[in-house]
């Protein structure tokens, strides 16, 4: 067993034997939670796959109405914010709480930027009439299946945006704790597990980007 007397026990909860057990539990806990999240999005990916197979042409039309550049910029934003979160973990591991906080806050701000761009996109869809239901104005072949594409688009990106919102708040709060020096190279699990959550949000977007934005351009 580990000699726990030698390591600092600041942040150790009563039911854990030592810091290592607590850290390993937190990491595993977040991973198991993320698996739940994979399956949560998984139901939507299944719907996407089934309907894309059935209505491929409608999917191409729908994708043509996506804003390629906003989608690409948002991808860049999320990839950069993921790098910052990774650097935040590095900073706290080497004892630089202040740097950790700055990285987390910038990443959080980038999440806000992502949401803002997403909002501009949604607004454009509303103006264009690319909203399934009564507001639908797009004159396209097979309008019903194209509406289905937009329905799935709104549900998938909406659920993703909800996760980004939670992540933005999480990173901001953890950054605040870091700035107040709550973490140390021995105890930094909250930074690490919030980072895992943010990277997961990034991974979901890595799949949403080609599945929603990049279909149309393959047409010769």
């Amino acid at each position: 067993m580990h000699d726990s007397s030698a390591v600092a026990t600041h942040g150790l909860r009563h039911h854990f034997a030592d810091m290592e057990q607590q850290r390993a539990s937190a990491t595993l806990g977040m991973w198991v939670f993320l698996v739940t999240e994979i399956m949560f999005f998984g139901g939507l990916f299944a719907a996407y796959l089934v309907y894309r197979t059935a209505h491929y042409d409608a999917w191409v039309i729908g994708s043509e109405h996506m804003n390629f550049w906003l989608g690409t910029i948002n991808t860049v934003i999320l990839l950069c914010s993921s790098l910052l979160v990774a650097l935040a973990v590095h900073a706290v591991q080497v004892g630089q709480n202040r740097m950790c906080a700055i990285y987390l806050w910038i990443a959080s701000a980038m999440g806000v930027a992502f949401l803002a761009l997403k909002g501009i996109e949604y607004h454009a869809h509303f103006v264009e009439g690319a909203v399934p239901g009564a507001l639908w104005k797009l004159a396209v072949p097979d309008p019903r299946a194209v509406q289905m594409f937009f329905y799935i688009y709104f549900v998938m990106t909406g659920l993703h945006a909800l996760h980004v919102t939670i992540g933005v708040a999480l990173l901001a709060v953890i950054g605040w704790h870091a700035a107040r020096g709550r973490y140390s190279p021995v105890y930094y699990s909250p930074v690490h597990v919030s980072g895992l959550y943010w990277h997961f949000v990034d991974v979901v977007w890595i799949f949403l980007y080609p599945l929603l934005y990049l279909i149309a351009h393959k047409k010769a």
């Binding site: 595993l28 991973w31 698996v35 399956m39 998984g42 990277h199 997961f200 991974v203």
Partner: peptide
């Protein structure tokens, strides 16, 4: 992202690998 940013490549707990693979397998 998973292997480097999320540290799975450096994870000494084998269970993390199992959990990640199980998630995508399911």
């Amino acid at each position: 992202v998973i292997l480097f940013f999320m540290h799975v490549r450096y994870e000494d707990q084998k269970i993390t690998w199992v959990v990640v693979i199980a998630g995508f397998f399911w």
